[in-house]
Computed example of a mutant assay.
Amino acid sequence: MASMRELKGRIGSVNSSQKITGAMKMISSAKLRKVQSALEHLMPFRNQLQNTINNLLGADSEYQSPLTEQRPVHRVAFVVFGSDEGLCGAFNVSLFKFLLEAINRTNNELGTKTEYIVYPVGKKILSSVSKMKDVEIADVSYLNSKSGADAVKRLTDELTNRFLSHEIDRVELLYFHFKSIGSQALDSRILLPVSVADLAGGELLSHAKPYIYEPDSETIFRTVIPLYVRSNLHETWLESRTSEQAARIMAMQMANDNAKKLLDSLQLEYNKLRQQNITAELLDILGGSVQ
C-alpha cells in the first residue's frame, strides 16, 4: 500500500495534469471557432460558383474542360488530411487505416498494378505514411495548420498540373467530415477528374438560356472549373482542421473526466489511510493509559 506522502504527491500530479488538459481544451475551443468562421466565410464563394455552374449547365450547350476528362486510371493520388499535433484521440490513426482501406478498394476496382502517390498533410500522418512501401510520398510540408489560402492554392495547382500532364489520372481526398463537436465522420471525395454529376450539385436553372455570356460561355466554364476545384480542396482542408480541433476538445474532456475520477479515488484512499493512522495512534495512547 502506498504511503500518505506518495498519495499526496500523486494527487498533486493529477491536479497539475487536469489544469493542463483544461487549458488545452479552452485553446482548442478558440481554434475551433476560428476555423468554423473561416469555413462559413468560404461558403458564399462556393455557392456563387455553384450558381454560375448551374446557369451554364442549364443551357442547351455541352461544355468540356481538360479537368473533366475521364480516362483510364493508372496512377492515383490520395491527399490525406491529418494533423501537425497530437493529443486528438484516434484522429490520425483512423485516417491512416482509412487510407489503407482506400488503397485496397482501389486495387479491387482497378487492379494491383495501379501506382499510388500519397500527399500527407500534417506531421503526424506523415510519420505513419512514411513507413509504407511501394507508395510515392509527396512533399506537402508547406501546408500546415498555420497556412493560408496561398498554400492551398499551391497544392491545388500542383495536383491540377500533374493531372493535366497525365502524371496522375485520379485525385482523391481523405479527411474527417465535421458534423458536430462530438461527431466527425471519415469521408472521401474525388477531386479530379471533375464529374458532371458533382458539378450539378444544385438544381439546374431552367431560365439560364436568356443569359448573355461575355466573352462566351465556353471560356467562362473553363475559367470557373479550376476555381471550383480549388474551393473543393480549401473546403476539405478547413473541414479537416475543424474536425481535428473538435477531436482534441473531446480528448481533453475525457482526460479531465478521467482525472476527476482518479482524484476522487486517490483522495478516498488518502482519507482512509489517514484515518487508519489516527486510529492506530489513538489505540497506542489508550493502551499506554491502561498500562
Rank of each mutant, 00 (worst) to 15 (best):
K97L: 05
Q184T: 09
A197C: 08
V290A: 15
V196N: 15
K19V: 00
L57Y: 09
N55Y: 12
V152T: 13
S240M: 04
L283E: 15
R241D: 01
S83Q: 06
I220F: 13
Q64G: 08
A90S: 13
I249V: 11
D139N: 13
V121L: 14
L204Y: 00
R5P: 02
V73D: 01
P210M: 07
S17G: 09
G122V: 05
Q267G: 02
D169W: 08
N92R: 00
K153P: 02
V79H: 12
E136M: 14
I190E: 14
H177Q: 10
E281N: 13
D84V: 09
V135I: 14
L268R: 15
D134C: 09
Q267H: 04
R162N: 10
V79W: 11
G201Y: 01
L273D: 05
I181E: 13
G111E: 06
F176L: 01
G58F: 01
K146D: 15
V224N: 08
I125A: 09
C88K: 14
M26K: 10
I125P: 04
L263Q: 06
V79K: 14
K209Q: 12
M252T: 07
S206G: 10
V196Y: 15
E214S: 13
D150H: 12
V73N: 02
E62K: 15
A102D: 02
F178L: 02
N104Q: 12
G202H: 00
V76S: 00
A208W: 01
N15R: 10
T52E: 10
E136F: 15
F163I: 08
C88T: 13
S17V: 03
E109I: 14
D257Q: 01
S13D: 06
N51R: 13
S37L: 08
L204H: 00
Y270C: 06
L273F: 05
L263M: 06
L87C: 11
P193R: 12
L199N: 02
I225R: 09
A197N: 11
L99W: 09
R162W: 08
K261G: 05
N256C: 02
I117A: 04
K113H: 13
G9V: 10
M1T: 03
E6A: 07
Y142T: 11
A138Y: 14
T223P: 03
S165Y: 11
R154I: 02
Y175P: 01
T279S: 13
A247W: 01
